[in-house]
Nucleic acid binder design. Structure first.
Length: 484
RNA sequence: CGGGGUGUGGCGCAGUUGGUAGCGCGCGGCGUUUGGGACGCUGAGGCCGGAGGUUCGAGUCCUCUCACCCCGACCA
């Protein structure tokens, strides 16, 4: 450990205090910084570049399902937010209100959107007249505000970045299909781009979105304490919002009907997920597909003459790579190579290329992978593009495998309530167990262990055993875990 | 809202029984260095969270207050 500690002396080790490691690594890798308002964070250029790369990939997938982007106002009149009773009940405690415009008291307070159903649905009501107008498929990229008691960088901040999709349909079946489709989009995005395996499933009644008929979720396991993180949700809102906002249309038979809605969102908390799932004692490990810098080139020289030759080769390699990957040449002359190695390890850049006099002489570069530090390989300059692309794909793959292995290793089928208590107390991970479906059993476990039902996985066993808590016939196999 | 803790250069901290503020890192300059966080010299930077009080004198003692952090409660 002492030799390890030498590399990044200022970063606490995960094992010592995972939560503090999380805070420190975000700060030191320059993903985000503190801001004057408690619970808000500045997202720095490196962190924002990561989010932008994520946006591009997710946006593409969303649009591929026929959705269009739009933008709705930040402010929602109080009366609008209050129309769906469960919706406002769920969000009331964490809504931020604007009551004054300049010096003038507003006639009606405006909510800063905690989510936009209640401002989008009234617009849907205006736009929908006939079954021919349906479906409407809208997405917006924006930030929302929820006045949380205990903020955590990226995972739970007062203001956070996300996309929220909102759709209207003629039938419940169509809404259901859309809700499930978008969850599948999220699953694919999170697993493919972020290299995080997830468990798709349905939320229990007590955990579902305020105002929804059904909520679907993808749940991921974080490193360290092996807690769960709800990584995205998709809701079938039924006709709850259709009725209160009077989104009606004439069907083919000329009959007036209420429309059905869905909404679905993925936020920048998934950045926090990447940090916690892939990171190690040296810092971040960013999945190549979304990493702001995929390859960093570190030049090494002693004399001015060497410097000239090395930088010439660096420039040549950078130009070769630039068309294929996101590459950065670290030409700072006030930092030593060793310092740079540690710095880029901390920032999670997947591949480092070292180019020194030896490499120049042999027309090669030295390639080091962030996920398997210490294993250096040399690559002829002529082959560098191909080699880098191959390694990036391989890193993406191995990050996903490692995360999946962690998920599997820390998941257990639990048949005894005492065992569940033990495992939750020990931060042992996910617990698969049978549940009768009663909210009493659910509440009891939450009170006694702090674990909640993360989801009812879509994948269910062929046969059901008795409820873990009360012994009544089991109706579902669920995942119990503590969550961020 | 309960329990605990911390506020001193950008960051991390020290500051004894009260005597007029210091260390490390970082930052600027110069020189030597550079294959896993180099070194020397030199320089800049602080009304010690805020208000009031005690005192000849307060970073230090007293009172009040503010902010932040941690643990609970709460939170899709």
């Amino acid at each position: 450990m002492t030799t390890e500690r030498k590399y990044v002396e200022e970063l606490i080790e995960q094992e010592d205090d995972f939560d503090r490691w999380y805070v420190e690594v975000i700060q030191k890798a320059e993903l985000a910084d503190e801001s004057p308002v408690r619970g808000t964070r500045v997202i720095r250029p490196y962190g924002f570049a990561l989010w932008e790369n994520m946006q591009v990939e997710l946006d593409r997938r969303i649009k591929a399902t026929g959705v269009q982007n739009a933008y709705f106002p930040l402010f929602i009149p109080k009366s609008y937010l209050e129309r769906e009773a469960q919706h406002i009940q769920g969000f009331a405690p964490e809504v931020a209100w604007v009551t004054k415009g300049g010096d003038k008291e507003l006639e009606e307070p405006l909510a800063v959107r905690p989510t936009s159903e209640s401002i989008i649905c009234p617009m849907f009501a205006r736009w929908v007249q006939s079954y021919r107008d349906l479906p409407i498929l809208i997405n917006q990229w924006c930030s929302v505000v929820r006045w949380e008691e205990r903020p955590r960088a990226f995972l739970r901040t007062l203001e956070f970045l996300w996309q929220e999709g909102h759709t209207v349909h003629a039938t419940l079946e169509e809404a259901e299909e859309r809700a499930r489709l978008m969850l599948e989009v999220y699953r694919d995005f999170v697993e493919t781009e972020l290299a995080i395996p997830v468990i798709p499933g349905q939320k229990s009644e007590s955990e579902k979105f305020a105002g929804a008929l059904r909520t679907y979720t993808i749940e991921a396991m974080m490193g360290g304490k092996h807690w769960a993180l709800q990584s995205a949700t998709s809701h079938n809102l039924g006709d709850h919002f259709g009725r209160v906002f009077e989104i009606t249309f004439l069907d083919r038979e000329g009959k007036r009907r209420f429309a059905f809605n869905t909404s679905w969102g993925l936020s920048h908390r998934t950045i926090g997920a990447m940090v916690m799932v892939h990171g190690d004692d040296r810092g971040l490990k960013l999945p190549p597909r979304v990493a702001p810098i995929q390859v960093v080139i570190v030049p090494i020289w002693r004399k001015d003459e060497e410097r000239r030759q090395v930088e010439e080769t660096v420039e040549r390699v950078r130009t070769m790579l630039r068309r294929a990957v996101r590459v950065h040449a670290d030409l700072r002359d006030d930092k030593t190579p060793g310092w740079k190695f540690n710095d880029w390890d901390l920032k999670g850049v997947p591949i480092r290329l070292e180019i020194g006099p030896r490499d120049v002489a042999n027309q090669q570069v030295t390639l080091v992978r962030r996920d398997v530090l210490g294993q250096r390989q040399t690559v002829p300059v002529a082959n560098v593009v191909e080699a880098v692309q191959q390694e990036l794909a391989s890193i993406q793959d191995s990050l996903f495998r490692a995360a999946r292995e962690m998920l599997e290793r820390h998941t257990e089928e639990v048949r005894d309530y005492e065992r569940l208590k033990e495992r939750v107390a020990a931060n042992a991970g996910f617990n698969r167990a049978f549940w009768c479906g009663s909210s009493d059993c659910e509440a009891r476990v939450k009170t006694e262990t702090k674990a909640t039902i993360r989801c009812i996985p879509f994948e269910q066993p062929a046969e059901y055993e008795p409820c873990l808590v009360c012994g009544a016939p089991g109706r579902y196999q669920v995942i119990w875990a503590r969550a961020y």
